[in-house]
Structure formats: C-alpha cells, structure tokens
C-alpha cells in the first residue's frame, strides 16, 4: 500500500523552482531515503509533506489525506524531527516527552506506561529528571527521535536527523529507526551522508530540484556501475549540472 503519493509536485519561490515536478510514491513500512546536496530541495519537499508549507502545484497525499484540504488529519498521523535539534533544553527529559505526548492527545495513563518503557529501552531511566541541556548530544538525538515517534505515527519524517553526530551514534540512531519500522512506522529520511543511503529500502536522489534517480541502493549501484552510493551520487550530480 502506498502511504505517500506525490504527483508532479512543483514549489516555486518567486522565479526560483525549488521542487521541479517531483513524482514518487512511498510504500507503507519502508525506509525511504531522500538524498541530495544542500540546497537541492529536500527540506522544501519534506516541509510540504508535513503540512508546513503549501505546494505551488501538484497532487500530493500523505497517509491517505490531501495536503491542501486535510492538513490537520495529516499532522495527527505523522511525526517530525527537524535538522535543528528540537527538544527544549530547559525542560527535563520526562517533561519533553510528556509535552509532546500531550500535544498529540495521548492519555495520562498511556503516557506514563510508554515513558517508563521507552526510558528503560534507551537506558535513560536514571536521567529522566535531568534537563535536556545537561545530557550529551548523542543521547539528545536519540531522545528527539523517540519523542517524534512516541505517539506511534504512521509516518515519521526525519530532516537530516544525524547532522553533526559521530559515526557510532549515527549507527545507533539507525538501529532506532529500524526498531520503529518493526512497529510498522514508515520512515521518510533526508540526508546527505551517502553511507546512510545504504540503510534505506529505496532511495531518491535529488539534483537541483529534480529527482534524478529512484530505486533500491543495490539497483542504483548496478545501473551506474558504481562501487558505492557516493559514486552514484557524484555521477548524477555531474550530469545534472
């Protein structure tokens, strides 16, 4: 089943075309990678899918809802984590979790149970009363992701979630992502780390507002006779410019 359907999405800022007729689908339960250099239009597209911005034209549905008319329903069904770190530094771990859980309308009882379970799984039970500002970046990042999927959304959008994080933490972060997919959550992730592309089920590569390639990492490497995703990307970027 297709959980995201995008048909001829165009987004213009004045005369600048940030998204140039994007067409793609995302299957339910997959990890969909959205790759591209900085400024290729990834964030613009993800913002439209999250209901943060209107497209100029095109037909787009997320979780079965139309982005023009049913933004509220979309927002109820998605989680979002932006490239800028997004928990409140002056609130404690627990307060951050409860704030977002409350915003998504979870019940108190439910929140309490899930919070305990989550903190245990992350090994953070001891620091639930510590302020976010006091804990290491890697932990924050994991926590931010966990908060984004705390309300069990159908899709979670991750906009450059691993920016500025060391390789080990990135690895651990991807383990969290896989855990989320086991619970049936679809993951839509943008990144410019090409090694992360290998972790995705399918990858689309954007160059200057257009999708230049979309397939599984294995097929992409084969089609471009490349050893890794980085080579694929460089080839496409050269052709595109």
């Amino acid at each position: 089943m297709k959980i995201i359907e995008v048909d001829q999405l165009v987004k213009k800022f004045g005369s600048f075309v940030a998204n140039d007729h994007l067409t793609f689908d995302v299957e339910e339960g997959e990890v969909f990678g959205f790759l591209g250099a900085n400024g290729a239009g990834k964030t613009t597209a993800i913002r439209i899918l999250c209901g943060l911005s209107y497209p100029t034209s095109g037909r787009i549905s997320v979780a079965g809802f139309d982005v023009y008319r049913e933004r509220e329903k979309i927002k109820q069904n998605i989680g979002y984590m932006s490239q800028k770190f997004s928990l409140y530094e002056d609130l404690t771990v627990s307060e951050n979790i409860r704030l977002y859980a409350g915003i998504y309308g979870l019940r108190k009882q439910e929140i309490r149970e899930r919070e305990t379970e989550l903190l245990e799984r992350l090994g953070m039970s001891d620091i639930r009363k510590r302020r976010i500002g006091e804990i290491p970046l890697g932990w924050k990042q994991k926590l931010a992701f966990s908060v984004a999927v705390f309300h069990k959304p159908r899709i979670v959008f991750l906009d450059e979630p691993t920016g500025g994080v060391d390789p080990i933490t990135r690895r651990q972060f991807w383990e969290l992502i896989y855990e989320a997919t086991k619970e049936g959550i679809t993951v839509f992730v943008t990144t410019h780390y090409m090694d992360e592309a290998e972790y995705c089920d399918r990858v689309s590569i954007m160059v200057q507002g257009r999708i230049e390639a979309l397939d599984t990492p294995r097929n992409l490497r084969r089609d471009h006779q490349a050893g890794d995703m980085n080579e694929v990307f460089l080839q496409l970027a050269r052709e595109g410019s």
């Binding site: 999250c50 927002k75 109820q76 932006s82 997004s86 915003i103 998504y104 309308g105």
Partner: peptide
C-alpha cells in the same frame, strides 16, 4: 531560532 517551532507547527496544535 532553536528549531523547536517546526515540530510544533507539524503537530496537531493549530
């Protein structure tokens, strides 16, 4: 500035 506005806007809060 801290990037906390975006998650709020992407949430069901109006």
């Amino acid at each position: 500035e801290f990037g906390t506005m975006e998650p709020l806007l992407a949430s069901p809060l109006k």
